Simulated assay, not measured.
Amino acid sequence: MSDKPTTIKEIAKILKISVSTVSRALNDHSSIGLTTKMRVKKLAMELNYEPNQKAIQFLQGKSHIIGVILPELSESFFSTAISGIEDVAYKRNYTVLLAQSHDDADREKLLVEKMKTQRVDGLLVSVSKTTSTYEHFEVFKKLNIPVVFFDRIPPIKDIHYVASNLENGTYEAVNFLLKKGHRTIGMINGPTTLVASHERKEGYIKAMISNRLKFDPSLIVSCDLSEDGTIDVMNTMLNHRRKPTAIVTFNDYVALFAMRYTRSLELEGIDFVSYANLPIINYMDYTPIASVEQFPYKQGKKAADILIDLINRPKNETGTEQAYFNVVVESELIVPTPK
């Protein structure tokens, strides 16, 4: 026996029938009689015939692969989102091609090009924190290959996206701190290139104004989300003329960096509220007093469903007048039960 995979041509030659007849028989075409179908399938099984997926994909014009580009798989938020994406892909017979930008805009651009080369049917993206231009996604639009953004979405029009309602989440977080008696509340925000940073700021302002408190813009500082960057902005906060008694941080990692730094200075009395509600915070001695849950699994699952629906929509629906899916997942402020 040859190590080479059996082909339709070989089956046709043995049975002395046409290649097209074998193909139709294997696909249960109504034009082929039952006896011929049984003969073809029996021989195919005996010869361990496997369909040529590349040939099938070529005929269908699809690879049944979706690309996913995210900042860091090591972050619990994104690994949880990937679980949602993969669950949907598995159920709908798609394979996931995963890549990490490591929060580098140039790397992200290169990965987008590589995804195109790999002939993915569609692309899911959470943009890097350093991405400030978005022309690299235009090539997919020109090729009618759908792109769905999730969590970190770009500030551009006419895109499909799934994201958490961070404005409301921030409003709840600041309100929570105000009810605890805090009046000087700082915010360590993310890079200004991220839509999420703008939404957090808007929620903060909304909460202050609704409580008839003056908004002090100097109490909101932007951070690159690294540990060194967090320490820099924490020094700014601690040296502020109105030293905050509570701080809202961009995510749980930033909160942990900030809390570790304040403890190294032997400072106490500052409450922290963060975002993402990572499982790890339940196993730490010093944690944020509350965290905004953004439901990454739900975001990933919904984004994947939308992408695959877009891939499989009828060809006559791919015109420029298409509707764009803009899905907002409601966030929830989680207050841990005291240990």
Rank of each mutant, 00 (worst) to 15 (best):
M208I: 05
F250C: 08
V162L: 12
N239M: 07
S210C: 01
I159L: 03
P217L: 13
H136Y: 06
P146E: 09
L177T: 09
C223I: 04
Y171Q: 14
S197N: 06
P155A: 03
K243M: 10
I156P: 01
F150W: 05
I159E: 05
I156V: 09
V162W: 11
E227A: 11
M208T: 03
E167S: 15
N235D: 15
N211F: 07
N144E: 06
V254S: 04
T236K: 09
N168P: 02
A246N: 05
V139M: 13
N168F: 08
H240L: 07
K141S: 14
T245E: 04
E172Q: 15
V148S: 01
K206V: 00
N175E: 09
V221G: 06
K243S: 02
I159C: 05
F250T: 07
I205R: 02
N235F: 07
V174Y: 10
T170G: 14
G181E: 07
L238V: 09
F150N: 04
N189S: 15
F215L: 11
V195C: 09
F140M: 07
D158Y: 06
V162H: 14
Y204F: 12
C223K: 03
F176Y: 15
V174K: 11
K180N: 06
I209E: 10
I153F: 01
N144W: 07
G181D: 05
